[in-house]
Amino acid sequence: MDYEFNWLVLWEYRDLLLEGLVLTIKLSAISIVLSTIVGTIFGIMRLSKSLIIRLIASSYVEFFLNTPLIIQLFFWYFALPMALPGWLQSWLWAHNYEFIASVIGLTIYTSTFIAEAVRAGIQSIDKGQREAALASGLTGFQTLWYVILPQAIRIVIPPVVNQFLNLTKNSSLAMTIAVPELTYQAQAIESLTFRGFEAFTAATLIYICLTLTISLVMGKVERWAAKGQRPMAA
C-alpha cells in the first residue's frame, strides 16, 4: 500500500470540520423537535373519529413515507420556489433557503415514521384506561393528555429514538442541496487536500459520537417515562 496517512490535515482544516459539525447539530436538533411535534399530531389524527381527518393523516403518512428523501429534498429546494411569487422567492434565497428546505424535508420525512410509532403506541394502551378517564369526567383532550399519552410515551420512545438516529444520519443528504454540514465539509477537505481517507474517517467518527450521545440521553428519558410501570425487558 503506497498511501501515506497524514492525519495532520484534519488539524489544519479543523475549522471546516467544526463548522460542519455545528451545522449538522443545528439541522438535526431543529428537525428532531419539529418532526416529533408534527409526527405526534398526525399519529393522533390517524386515530380520529372523523373519517376526513383520518384520510388526511393517512394520505400524508403514505405519501411522504413512500418517496425517497433525496427526491423530497430536491422538491422543496428546486421545485417549490418555482411555484412561489417572485418576492417570496427572493426572500427565501436571501434567508438561507437551503437550510430551511432541508429542515422541511427532514421534518416531513421523519414525521411519517414518528406518526406510525405514536399511533401504534396509543393503540397499545388498554381500552379500559380511556373508559376510566372518560367516566371520571375528563374531556377527550384531557384523557389523551393526562392518561393516554403519558403511558404511550414509554412504548413510543424506542422506535422514535431510532428515527432520531436515522434523521441525524439522513441530515448528510442536505449536502446535495448545498448545506455546508459535516459531510459537505469532509468532501471539501478531500477536494482541497486529496486526503479522502482521513477526511471521511473523521466524519464517520463524529457521526458515531453524535448518535451515541442521542442514544444515551434518550435512554435516560426512557427511564423517566417508565415511572410507575414495569421496567422494559432488557
Binding site: A135, P150, G228
Partner: peptide, 12 residues
Amino acid sequence: YVIQEIGLFPHM
C-alpha cells in the same frame, strides 16, 4: 365509576 383493576392509571 369502578371497574376492574385495570382502571387505575399506572403512571400516577
